[in-house]
Write a protein that binds this DNA or RNA. Structure first.
Lengths: 157, 157
DNA sequence: TATTGTTATACTCTATAACTATA
DNA sequence: TATAGTTATAGAGTATAACAATA
């Protein structure tokens, strides 16, 4: 197997894992009366420091206007609310409501429990984590990667 | 770091890698005048043995009617065509046109070249592949996984 | 001037339900 | 009866362009 083929195989694996995770997420979303995308957004909303509409759009790689309508729908369902930023009056902080938090917790727990990774032993998972981090950090600047992945210990969950 | 946290970290990595791949795919899709979803479908259309509308829907985890409209749009752009199945007259085989093939090749090449995985050395990629396969095979039946991932040597590309 | 967020608009994406044709 | 595919419909997701408010 040459390098090109190996890369393709890795992408096929990525696709397969994403498909498995997505299937679980979809099932949960259905129970909760949400769409896949909304469930995904809920998950992403809870990671990292302070969430704004702009930051959510960056994270979901969509236009700002798309984030606006996404937040509209989540707000209508009572899962998030828009709070004015204390110092910058242009910015709206997107906060999870208690119901939003509860659902977010269910999403994370449900997904990580049934994750394909859960079948690996602890050692394998550590090795996998190291390899993935290496791949991620190699292609993006540390800042960009940090925004998506790293969560300060105190702010986790 | 306990197991729950490690699992969450792994999912964050998965998200980050998917985001990087998606960003590359999006750029290419834009150039080609396609949407992300169409580009993804094009990629998936080319993997595995014989593609039918039903199989595409399974693979993209969407409803059959969604696959129908997706194929409609790809057909309108001249990237695929519907061919009657030789023995089962209910089935339509979805074939890539020459233009579809060319674009599909560009998508795969572009993405695998700029993939986060490309930065890992050969040894690391082999280890990563092994770990991912292990995670995939552990949670799904061999048959299901085979449909998504394994491609017989003769039919690849 | 640049940035944050919104609105209006026009697509694409998506599932549900009802249908036809074939197995 | 079951399966492959389509159509009609309605709502969610999406980007573009134009805009207001604020930095």
């Amino acid at each position: 197997m040459d390098d090109q083929q190996l890369n393709e195989q890795l992408h096929d694996c990525l696709f397969a894992i994403r498909a498995q995770v997505h299937a679980e997420l979809k099932e949960l979303a259905r129970e909760a009366g949400l769409t896949d995308t909304q469930t995904d957004a809920l998950w992403r909303l809870s990671r990292g420091p302070e969430m704004t509409a702009r930051r959510l759009a960056d994270r979901l790689q969509c236009d700002a206007s798309t984030a606006t309508s996404m937040i509209d729908r989540l707000e209508r369902r009572g899962l998030v609310r828009r709070v004015p930023h204390p110092t910058d009056r242009r910015v709206k902080v997107i906060q999870l409501t208690p119901e939003g938090c509860a659902l977010r917790d269910r999403v994370i727990q449900h997904t990580t429990e049934r994750s394909p990774f859960a079948r690996l032993d602890h050692e394998s998972r550590l090795r996998l984590h190291e390899l993935l981090r290496q791949a991620i950090d190699g292609t993006h600047s540390a800042d960009e990667a940090a925004d998506v992945v790293a969560i300060p210990e105190g702010e986790r969950r």
